[in-house]
Design a protein around this nucleic acid. Structure first.
Length: 699
DNA sequence: GGCCCGGAAATATAGACAGCATGTC
DNA sequence: CTATATTTCCGGGCC
């Protein structure tokens, strides 16, 4: 089907914009989706492979929607994905569509979200906007859910499910759900009263293979199509592809392995690139720690590793360098499996096992298919190749049966877990104010669609629990949410977290820094650092402040290891807010810069919640808690808070200024020369300009 | 005594969402 | 209770 044929649906202008991207015709599954009613008001579930044009379908539907005067919400699972889609959709600004984004602590530009025709968000943020009664949400006429197979995720699937069910109740939008290929897409479609479009078509043919004992075998449609001998290890597999002008993406199971593989491959990949010194330098500018040094070393030689220990800016730099062909090989942990779009001619799966709680286990087939789906760059490679490295005949068989010829797992709802029910029930009970109403709502979820189990018994228990925690009150025949309950719901924290904060704050008037931080780390919303065998020092150092804490189990109790992890994390945050050097913190706690940032980010969010609850009960230390939020955000002692609010002045520069006698913004403006000497002329001038600007506006 | 080697024992283990309140002819 | 791969430790053989 020719793109021109779409002009009656989306206007000639819109067709022009698509053509500018070099798209002339629709792919077969896209044609199928159009025929199935893409331009009607039908709900749709579209289950087709990565890179076969799901996003374009969503865009076509959204443009149509906007022309009709509608408003679209595009929901994705990751912030990085939100960024990617936001940038992509901004092309539609050329035909007058306004595009916005709302994720975590970032909101696009200075416009109101209500003015946008397309808003890109994560599922949690969308749910949060709903709890905070963002009025514009009820104007949404089209909801696009990207990666809807994430309904299956034990951690985050429930939120997506609740969001979809809630949206249907509140504004009943048209729903377009995009999914990877899954066996029960029609079940999701049935839940949504949607038409289901399924296809396995790919723009670039995929060859899946096995590498065992130096022999490379490719299979297609159940039969061996080609085999040849090449070298003995992964190096041969990589060079074989580079030799033909391709790029390689390697998936490995641990960060350490990914790093060492990248470094090993670099020894021979360097021949295939020119200088990457500028990229290496940019990566080191963000951080100079050990991991960053290793990354820079790899990049200089044309390889890189990619995992959650990198800073976000470093990750983006690696992705960009790979897209530009300046880095030839990226060795990644699962960060990239379901993340941003980064195709390569050859994908190598170095290990298909991953640690999961108690032991390492084979990854799921859907994960395999997602990794493998990255093989072959449309328009650039004639074919995509995916190779699993295997070390025994047994695992060769396993890979063939389970992955290459195996079927992807069904998607099942994970809403049944008590913590998810508790979390969402509190928020829902402000709209559905009786147990019957709540039960009725839960019957509209995917969980009920799949299981047809009444949630009533579970709900009763949870409601009583929430009442004991003073978040709900029961009237004659209706439930009402207390002020505390409403606050907890809007803060988007687990009610248990809210209760812990509320009860501990009520119990005592004095919290030391470490006690407050540890309270945050005790919470089910916090993700704590891992305790290693060699972490005895945690216990030893903790003796000094043990009696300040809100809780400490006996060393013989089963919770003790968990407790030590909380303490370790609290100590890490304590050093952060007392201005220890970032790289020193990373080294001492055995973490990478990206991990530190994530701990800080989560702690800041929870500290904010803590400070709100402290203010609510008028706690004696409420200003200490609100200061703590900022201190965590910037990683500084109290005295630097004024300086660090200035853009371009972080913890390091603020400390330099303070040491030089410039202790706040006023003193900065009054000591221009000195400031210029301490932090550099350019930075100082920018800072002063900003302060003066703020003063003018603030009066 | 020092060194190398093989095998046993110890060790470590992926990822990443969320608050808030904005302003104006 | 479940696994795997890498690193570290240790003892034996050898020069």
């Amino acid at each position: 089907m020719d793109i021109e044929e779409l002009k009656d649906h989306i206007s000639t202008y819109a067709v022009r914009i698509i053509e500018e991207r070099g798209i002339k015709t629709l792919f077969p599954p896209q044609v199928e989706a159009v025929k199935a009613g893409l331009f009607t008001r039908k709900n749709m579930v579209i289950a087709i492979p990565t890179a076969s044009g799901k996003t374009l379908l969503a865009e076509l539907a959204m443009v149509r929607e906007i022309i009709e005067g509608g408003k679209c919400l595009y929901v994705v699972p990751l912030r990085a994905l939100a960024m990617e889609k936001y940038e992509e959709f901004r092309k539609w600004e050329k035909i007058g569509a306004k595009v916005g984004m709302s994720i975590g602590d970032y909101e696009s530009r200075d416009e109101w979200l209500s003015e946008n025709d397309i808003v890109v968000t994560t599922s949690e943020k969308a749910d949060s906007l709903m709890r905070n009664r963002a009025g514009w949400l009820k104007d949404v006429t089209c909801l696009v859910v990207d990666e809807v197979h994430l309904l299956d995720s034990a951690k985050r699937g429930a939120t997506l499910e609740i969001l979809m069910a809630k949206m249907r109740k509140v504004c009943n939008p048209r729903i377009i759900a995009l999914s990877a290929t899954i066996p029960n897409a029609d079940e999701i479609a049935a839940w949504l009263d949607a038409v289901c479009v399924k296809s396995d078509w790919r723009p670039v043919p995929l060859f899946e293979g096995i590498f065992f004992n130096g022999r490379l075998e490719f299979y297609a449609d159940g039969v061996l199509t080609e085999q040849r001998k090449i070298g003995k290890d992964i190096m041969a597999l990589v060079l074989d592809c580079l030799e033909q002008g391709g790029q390689v993406l390697v998936f490995d199971s641990t960060r350490r392995n990914a790093e060492s593989t990248a470094l090993k491959l670099a020894q021979r990949v360097f021949r295939y690139i020119d200088s990457n010194e500028d990229i290496a330098k940019a990566v080191l500018e963000e951080n100079e720690g050990e991991m960053s040094q290793r990354l820079a070393d790899c990049i200089r030689m044309g390889t890189a590793f990619h995992h959650a220990g990198l800073l976000n800016s470093q990750r983006t730099a690696v992705e960009k360098a790979f897209r530009e062909g300046r880095v030839k090989v990226v060795v990644a942990t699962p960060t990239l499996a379901a993340g941003v779009n980064l195709p390569a001619r050859r994908v190598i799966i170095k290990s298909y096992h991953r640690f999961g709680g108690y032991a390492s286990e084979p990854i799921k087939t859907i994960e395999y298919k997602q990794m493998v789906g990255r093989a072959g760059r449309p328009g650039l490679d004639e074919r995509g190749e995916a190779v699993v490295i295997v070390r025994s005949n047994r695992s060769r068989e396993e890979v063939l049966n389970r992955y290459i010829f195996g079927e992807v797992e069904r998607i099942t709802s994970k809403l049944g877990a008590e913590n998810h029910l508790r979390f969402h029930t509190l928020a829902l009970s402000s709209d559905f104010r009786s147990i019957d109403a709540l039960e009725n709502f839960f019957e509209s979820t995917f969980f009920f669609h799949q299981n047809e189990i009444s949630a009533r018994y579970e709900l009763e228990r949870i409601l009583l629990q929430l009442e004991r925690w003073e978040m709900l009150e029961f009237g004659e025949n209706s439930i009402s949410v207390t002020e505390l309950g409403d606050m907890v719901s809007r803060l988007y924290i687990d009610p248990l977290t809210g209760f812990m904060f509320y009860s501990e704050l009520s119990k005592r008037d004095e919290f030391t820094e470490i006690a407050a931080l540890h309270l945050i780390c005790r919470t089910p919303d916090m993700e704590n650092l891992y305790i290693k065998k060699s972490d005895d020092w945690v216990e030893e150092e903790a003796i000094a402040f043990m009696d300040e804490l809100t809780y400490a189990p006996s060393p013989y109790s089963a919770d003790y290891d968990w407790f030590l992890a909380e303490v370790k994390t609290a100590m890490c945050l304590h050093e952060w807010i007392n201005e220890s050097d970032e790289d020193e913190i990373c080294e001492k706690y055995g973490i990478a810069p990206g991990d530190l940032m994530r701990v800080v980010e989560t702690a800041e969010w929870l500290a904010y919640a803590l400070s709100k609850i402290a203010a609510f009960i008028n706690h004696a230390q409420k200003s200490f808690f609100s200061g703590l939020v900022k201190r965590i955000k910037y990683g500084v002692k109290e005295e630097l808070l004024d300086l660090v609010e200035i853009k371009g002045i972080g913890r390091a520069r603020a400390r330099k200024l303070y040491t030089a006698g410039i202790r706040n913004r006023r003193e900065l403006v009054e000591n221009r020369q000195k400031a210029a000497v301490v932090i550099g002329k350019r930075v100082a001038e920018k800072a002063i300009a900003q302060i003066e600007n703020d003063l003018k506006r603030g009066g």
